[in-house]
């Protein structure tokens, strides 16, 4: 989807001079472009994507899915895109006295909203780099309206894959993580045998929620 930026409207601060018909039309067009260039609602996109792709994949019993792939220490994980809301640069986390523990770290402000923040290195038992790398990002994920934020060491990709082509999970990721993963996604491309452990959304979010009790 290319995003043609509408021509910037002439500075609104300069009033007085009456508009020519052409200018007025240009402004109107610019305004209409801006209106139309607004990001559509996610549900709307999803509905259309589903309806358009249905025809495409009918017959071929292929179920295409997409997951966000990220790195924690040496391990790669994948979380269904449907659960990822946004990605930000790292933010300061405020501890919640009496509540903060190894997994639940506190509150973080993302776009002015306060979100519970968890430590996935601990939850999934991944190695933590001695200091957060420059590639660190904070991911905001959500399931059933329950939002969570967590730092990842690197955000790699949004990977489309064939749901049938996943492998059974093996102990290629840390033991703690096995409990939260349900499949291995072959990543291909960069070297044979590289996989990301796909997080089972229900178990993953339940694991996060348990950190609060």
């Amino acid at each position: 989807m290319s995003e043609p930026r509408p021509p910037a409207a002439s500075a609104p601060a300069a009033p007085a001079a009456p508009l020519s018909a052409a200018e007025a039309e240009a402004r109107l067009r610019a305004a209409a472009d801006r209106l139309l260039a607004r990001a559509p609602a996610p549900a709307y996109l999803e509905a259309w994507a589903r309806s358009l792709t249905r025809a495409l994949f009918e017959g071929a019993a292929k179920e295409e899915r997409a997951a966000v792939v990220f790195r924690l220490g040496e391990d790669l994980y994948a979380l269904d895109v449907g659960h990822v809301r946004e990605v930000h640069r790292p933010r300061r986390v405020h501890r919640v006295p009496g509540r903060t523990n190894e997994v639940f770290r506190g509150l973080v402000s993302l776009r002015g909203e306060l979100v519970l923040c968890a430590d996935l290195h601990v939850l999934l038992g991944a190695d933590r780099p001695p200091r957060p790398p420059a590639t660190t990002r904070v991911v905001r994920a959500e399931k059933d309206g329950q939002g969570w934020a967590f730092d990842v060491d690197e955000l790699l990709d949004v990977r489309r894959y064939d749901a049938a082509a996943v492998a059974q999970p093996q102990v290629t990721v840390s033991k703690a993580a096995v409990h939260f993963t349900d499949a291995l996604l072959p990543l291909g491309g960069e070297g044979v045998g590289r996989h990301a452990a796909r997080l089972d959304a229900a178990r993953f979010f339940a694991g996060l929620a348990r950190s609060l009790t």
Binding site: V96, P97, G98, R99, L116, Q146, A209, L212
Partner: peptide, 8 residues
Amino acid sequence: RLGKVANL
């Protein structure tokens, strides 16, 4: 989800 947090 945090419930009542003591002192806050």
